[in-house]
Nucleic acid binder design. Structure first.
Lengths: 342, 342
DNA sequence: TGTTAGCACTCTACCCTGTTGAGTGCTAAT
DNA sequence: ATTAGCACTCAACAGGGTAGAGTGCTAACA
């Protein structure tokens, strides 16, 4: 059905198209990749490959380009692993020696680095906060009517939020509440805190203190604030160097989508099971992200998958290298995080 | 030299070009804006205006477009104030009723709103931290070897940063240091803290405690972290709707510049003296930001200018409306901030 | 039977050309 | 000083012709 030679031809087409961005013809293949047969033979093979839906013609009398299905076949069966060269490995390792002590920062920088190394767009999903266990919760008086709530989890997440109180609160009383909260909530996941204990605590405090509003606000605002997880993107403009984005309309829709947190999250979120995955062209469930592929990988803390990174490029991207980069970076990231919260 | 009629002609040219984005000819002016003279007369006037450098021809046999100098004249002498319509005012006011209790968030949201209302790109500079006076400094133990430093200023700036310690520190001792720092530093500007007291404190603590490294790290990392002020941009993609950015290369350079914090800062920073200012075309000191104008305005806390906002659009932008928006928003912003830190 | 050379055919990209229409600048008349 | 009229310029567009890349088919070949 799909014999060795067809594979070679498909492989050649993908390789060539990835580097040139031009439809590739039978003659080109015969000359550049010597398969030991003439262009005419290759023409026949290409005709078959087209029938199978693995390649397609932009128009008659143009060469062929791989279809999504073609890339899929390539990625699954043809592609050979490509080790990064010394320079790149060096770059990445150098980066990870830089000590960044806060999660957000680390992630953001990783994003930059990723896009820089790959020349594609990088996406990084920061761990769900609610996955982490509460390490510390503390309220600190800022002004008589304002309290700063500080939350730290064991996955390194730190968040603060100012809450306006309707009535003043004494520092002393604040201390007590702090103590109480810390006792009650330590070691619970934020989700648990949010779901199960919300009622109990607010009642408890309210009974003692008529501070129901404070308690409610605390919970609602501090824990449920802007989304439960965050994403960063880097190098979105790299896409503009790709010939498939020479049209401003396409640029607009693509960049527009990348600005929507929700969409980026879904791009990365699809799987939070361990490992690297590749989504090609139409496999990405968004109209508007056309002719693009995403490679995702996950990183871990304490053996738990806590987030994922992704590389977004044209379907015509250099898969082997991109996969290698994703894998090296996720590994390194996991290592660094392990050290960070040992 | 430049008589009333010339002004009228220039005014007409600017108005027309702003809405159509097409070079405007003498006939168009004669028909649409009845100045009571024929196109031939207008042609003569235009010839004069061109000689004066206020308008220019993209090529012979095209209409004229305003030059930077022409826009400058328009902005300085011709433009009439334009009140916002009820809808827009409503929009803005509605926005400011939303209660956002944290500065960063408020500013970021303002940015979104601004770009949405104007359909241009919005830039917002968040107050210099070092302008604010220290309201609170506190170190909170996160783990035996990690301390979270929290800084709050009277301008509403809140920052935290985790510091890794080389030796463990007891909660009790931390308390003492907190007390000491709070005493010593309260009410000083962060700059002062940074510059003058750095030495004194580190020596003081070190003598008592051999915690020189802690003190140093504290100061260096917590106070000097990533830049002293931050900027947000919003609606950068709006620029893609402007016909002058139909070319991907231009898009790339412009968006590239907007991604550089330093550049955006300078765009806004130029003046932190009170009031609205307009920078047209070449008056913006960046190659690469071509055919663009910026309108900036400042907002205040306690009568002190603490930050500025800007609108970036094509030189061919609707100045009167943009100015009105900037002015309404800075006013409202100052009001909200006043409430926030009364 | 698989492979190849050869050839007719197709289609895009490019260049050249002519035409149209908007707009100017000049001149002479009012 | 203003205007009508006219010659002139130039970008934008459309049509036509050509070159080149590439295909598909057929017939010959090993």
């Amino acid at each position: 059905m799909i014999d060795e030679r067809k594979k070679q031809v498909l492989h050649a087409i993908v390789k060539d198209y990835v580097t040139t961005a031009e439809p590739v013809g039978s003659r080109t293949i015969a000359k550049k990749y010597d398969l030991g047969v003439s262009s005419a033979t290759i023409r026949n093979e290409m005709s078959d490959l087209e029938e199978m839906g693995l390649i397609e013609q932009p128009h008659t009398s143009a060469g062929r380009i791989p279809s999504d299905k073609g890339y899929r076949f390539y990625v699954d069966y043809l592609m050979e692993k490509e080790e990064l060269d010394a320079d790149e490995i060096n770059n990445i390792n150098m980066f990870f020696t830089k000590r960044l002590s806060e999660l957000d920062e680390l992630v953001q920088e990783t994003c930059r680095m990723l896009s820089h190394v790959t020349k594609y767009t990088a996406l990084v999903l920061v761990p769900k906060r609610s996955e982490g266990k509460l390490e510390k919760i503390q309220m600190i008086s800022v002004s008589p009517h304002q309290v700063l709530v500080l939350i730290v989890t064991d996955t390194g997440f730190i968040n603060h939020r100012v809450i306006d109180l309707r009535q003043a609160i004494s520092p002393r009383r604040l201390q007590e509440i702090n103590f109480f909260l810390q006792e009650k909530l330590y070691g619970l996941s934020l989700e648990q805190v949010n779901r199960t204990l919300l009622g109990e605590i607010s009642i408890h405090i309210a009974r003692q203190e008529q501070l129901l509003d404070l308690a409610l606000e605390l919970m609602e605002q501090a824990l449920m604030d802007r989304g439960d997880e965050r994403v960063f993107t880097g190098g979105a403009l790299n896409m503009l160097n790709q010939p498939e984005f020479r049209d401003v309309e396409k640029v607009k829709t693509l960049l527009g989508m990348l600005e929507e947190e929700e969409i980026v999250k879904k791009l990365l979120h699809k799987q939070l099971r361990e490992g690297t995955e590749i989504f090609i062209g139409g496999e990405i469930p968004f109209e508007g992200i056309n002719k693009c592929s995403v490679i995702t990988g996950t990183y871990k803390v304490n053996g738990r998958v806590v987030g994922s990174i992704g590389i977004l490029g044209p379907t015509r991207m250099t898969y082997p290298k991109a996969v290698s980069v994703v894998e090296t970076v996720t590994d390194q990231l996991s290592l660094v995080l392990a050290k960070m919260f040992r």
